[in-house]
Design a binder for these strands. Structure first.
Length: 463
RNA sequence: GGCCUCGUCGUCUAGCCUGGUCUAGGACGCAUCCCUUUCACGGAUGAAACACGGGUUCGAAUCCCGUCGAGGCUGCCA
């Protein structure tokens, strides 16, 4: 076996690339890059009935988007002859056998075992029969000693030593037929053939490990180092799954999360760098990454924290980059205009799609008359203020912020209330109770639109 | 039911291996205050956790045992 670090992820195209898979991929990738090893992507599509091209595309696109480029790529469906060879070998050696029980019989057995609170395992009576009989249709199982006293042991980098009793396993299935391997056989064969040094996967695979070890022994394969990552959980602390709306990575892109932010956030779900830094670039993550420091317990996916991380990355974006991205999300080609809005948006949005909150820069606002009222001021007072503001803007325009601000402040002093000046103007321009500074907005909108909106507001007060 | 894993603020976590420096630190979120024309930004402050019970020890979040709790697995899915 090579000394090189070789890791893989083996997503199945029966669903989108969700957070959990992405995090597993990330940890494999970080470990490979940290050790100058190879990161392998293997598509587990032997379940032809459930595998779909659109899911495969989603997985590939999601990984690419996150920046997790792979060094080698395989599809299980291309490797059927390889599995077949090993299945045949197991059969010939009598280590595996055909089981002729029907699914109904097996189901019934399972129910009875559960009812009797007995072991849930299938000890097959066909195990010791002559396997040289003609071509069979039955499922293929590995022959496991049901009376074994042995404990199957393995070391997990995160959890230490783990052991299972061999006799609890039963004769578990390894292939539907010689041409159709089942999961446990396929991974074992692939990991061996691909010379995988570390199997880094979710904690939900711990229970599969003893089966795989038995298979490795039967096939004479060397054991890789196992690393079981803690699960990523939903709000209710159960494994993140469809019922939590297991969203594809691509959805996060659509919402305006930055891939760098997602990688950063995911990297910290199950791992903490020694210095405790929270915002780390890909290369900093690679540098700091250490499997030994991976956490044991599951972590809830907290979108609020993701939002914060994403906001931090938005603040770090260059002006040009931000303008590009914002243009895309605002559906606008007018980059000069977006460029003006950008500084205001930058400190206010958590994700790019939040730019929709600034719709009033693109169309006239619609709002309730009452919103124009500053505190308990009368309609007349509000109208008076708007009239004065109108005059000032007619005179000065909106391009010279300093002057405009001075005049408006003067007006504020005159009216003995700055809010009376700025609040109605804000609402006139944005239709919102929370918005950027009115003078900033006026400059972006320009003299004409600003005056138009002030006049509309003036009319509205009287109505 | 059986097997396996896990258990520090609401959430992510530091500390645990190598007991004392932990009146348990940081971050997100939350609250209050400052700034202020609102929101955001920024600044300051605050509330908030060692699951429980035994044991070992001069001393336990840290070591041991038990209990409880949570999750995972228990497919002719992966």
């Amino acid at each position: 076996m090579a000394d090189e670090i070789r890791v893989r992820i083996a997503p199945s195209p029966t669903g989108f690339l969700h957070i959990g898979t992405a995090r597993t991929a990330l940890f494999n990738w970080l470990f490979a890059r940290h050790n100058s090893g190879k990161f392998i992507l293997r598509i587990e599509d032997t379940d032809l009935e459930r595998s779909e091209k659109r899911f495969e595309d989603d997985i590939l696109n999601g990984l690419k988007w996150l920046g997790l480029e792979w060094d080698e790529f395989y599809k299980q469906s291309d490797r059927i002859p390889i599995y077949s060879k090993y299945i045949q070998k197991l059969l010939e050696q009598g280590k595996a056998f055909h089981c002729y029980h029907t699914e109904e019989e097996l189901e019934k057995e399972g129910r009875e075992q559960l009812a009797k609170k007995g072991l849930q395992r299938h000890v097959c009576e066909y195990k010791n029969k002559d396997s040289s009989a003609p071509a069979h249709q039955g499922i293929i199982r590995l022959a496991v000693d049901e009376n074994s006293k042995r404990k199957i042991k393995f070391n997990d980098t995160v959890r230490g030593d783990i052991e299972f009793e061999e006799k609890l396993l039963g004769d578990f299935s390894i292939a539907k037929d010689v041409e159709t391997p089942l999961y446990n056989l396929a991974v074992v064969v692939d990991d061996y053939e691909m010379d995988i040094s570390h199997v880094i996967r979710g904690e939900d695979h711990i229970a599969n490990t003893p089966k795989q070890i038995l298979l490795m022994e039967a096939l004479g394969f060397e054991m890789p180092q196992f690393v079981h990552l803690p699960l990523i959980l939903g709000e209710d602390r159960s494994k993140l799954s469809k019922r939590h709306g297991a969203t594809s990575m691509i959805e996060y892109r659509k919402l305006g999360y930055l891939p760098e932010a997602l990688m950063n956030f995911l990297g910290l779900l199950g791992f903490t760098p020694p210095d405790g830094k929270e915002i780390l670039s890909a290369s900093e993550l690679i540098e700091a990454f250490d499997l030994v420091k991976v956490h044991k317990s599951g972590a809830i996916f907290d979108i609020k924290k993701l939002d914060w991380v994403n906001g931090e990355y938005i603040k770090k974006l260059s002006e040009a980059e931000l303008v590009d991205k914002l243009s895309e999300f605002a559906n606008s080609d007018n980059k000069d205009y977006i460029f003006k809005i950008m500084p205001l948006a930058r400190e206010r949005i958590k994700k790019l799609s939040d730019i929709s909150e600034f719709s009033y820069f693109f169309q006239n606002p619609d709002y309730d008359k009452e919103l124009l009222r500053w505190k308990s001021r009368s309609d007349e007072e509000v109208k008076k203020s708007l009239e004065e503001v109108e005059k000032i803007i007619e005179k000065l325009g909106t391009d010279e912020q300093g002057k405009l601000r001075n005049e408006l402040d003067e007006l504020g002093k005159k009216l003995e209330d700055r809010g009376l000046v700025y609040w109605p103007l804000r609402v006139a321009l944005s239709g919102q109770k929370a918005s950027p500074d009115p003078v900033d907005m006026a400059e972006i909108l320009g003299k004409e639109k600003t005056l138009e909106r002030v006049r509309v507001a003036k009319e509205l007060v009287l109505a």
